[in-house]
């Protein structure tokens, strides 16, 4: 009960801001700044008034969210797998990092949105372009963190593995990877939020489906409230992904949090 109260107290600013925003927008009546209540209504009508069997999602929500989230998750997964594999190689194969460092630094510095038109010319419109942009843009945090993580494996852990003659596979699978996992997860989490951004960018520039496309459509039909609803939607998705990821991380890395608490 006390926790609930303190939670409410902690978030008092949210309702206060909403009420002020509501009053202000009602007074000014600017078409560009609709009141939050109207945004919420439109949000509900567009996406959340569906049947319970579809988790209240409307047909339009399924049609819009489906392709976007599919691409986002596919791109993130591919980037995650590639990033971990390359990161392990860079961290464990002596010298490899030195030979590849300038190229990787350069590739990392390229703004991923600029690759949309390039991939667009190469692959034409559609999912391959978007996947390529997401993978290219979000692989770096995973790659860098994995490299750091596998390099920083405690020497004691590795010596134990050598004394007991673990196979190379066991050393990688049961010592190096678990030990680097906290860092890898930090990279994956950052990548997930980047993937959301790049999903929107790729859909704004070259797509005919998804949330970004739908946002562009609302803008071009001068549906300002609709534009706001999309922005709110993307914010909610960002929060949701982060929260889900933290839950998953808490499960997988419970040993890490606990081990640190007990030291």
């Amino acid at each position: 009960m006390r926790r609930a109260t303190s939670g409410v107290l902690r978030f008092w600013i949210v309702p206060v801001t909403l009420v002020l925003w509501e009053l202000l927008t009602r007074v000014t009546e600017s078409p560009y700044f609709p009141p939050p209540s109207r945004i919420a209504t439109q949000f509900y009508d567009m996406w959340l008034s569906g049947p319970a069997s579809q988790l209240l999602l409307t047909e339009s929500a399924l049609d819009t969210f489906g392709p976007s989230l599919g691409r986002l998750l596919a791109g993130w997964t591919i980037a995650g797998v590639l990033g971990i594999a390359l990161g392990v190689a860079l961290g464990r194969i002596r010298g490899l990092a030195e030979y590849t460092d300038p190229v990787l630094q350069f590739l990392r510095a390229l703004p991923p949105p600029l690759l949309v038109p390039i991939f667009f010319v190469l692959f034409k419109i559609g999912t391959p372009t978007q996947l390529a942009v997401i993978v290219f843009g979000v692989i770096w945090p995973v790659l860098v963190n994995t490299t750091d993580g596998v390099r920083a494996v405690d020497k004691g852990f590795l010596e134990t593995a050598r004394v007991f003659q673990f196979s190379r596979y066991d050393i990688l699978r049961r010592v190096i990877l678990p030990s680097a996992m906290p860092k890898i997860f930090a990279g994956l989490r950052l990548s997930l939020s980047l993937a959301l951004i790049l999903m929107v960018v790729s859909e704004l520039v070259g797509s005919n489906s998804g949330i970004g496309y739908s946002l562009l459509y609302a803008q071009q039909s001068y549906d300002y409230t609709g534009v706001w609803a999309h922005i709110v939607l993307l914010g909610v998705l960002g929060l949701l992904f982060n929260a889900l990821f933290l839950v998953a991380e808490g499960r997988v890395l419970s040993w890490h949090a606990n081990a640190r608490r007990n030291v």
Binding site: G156, F157, T160, M181
Partner: peptide
């Protein structure tokens, strides 16, 4: 080893 915390794997 002396340092069990660096010899036992905390994830197991």
């Amino acid at each position: 080893f002396q340092d069990y915390s660096r010899s036992l794997y905390p994830w197991m």
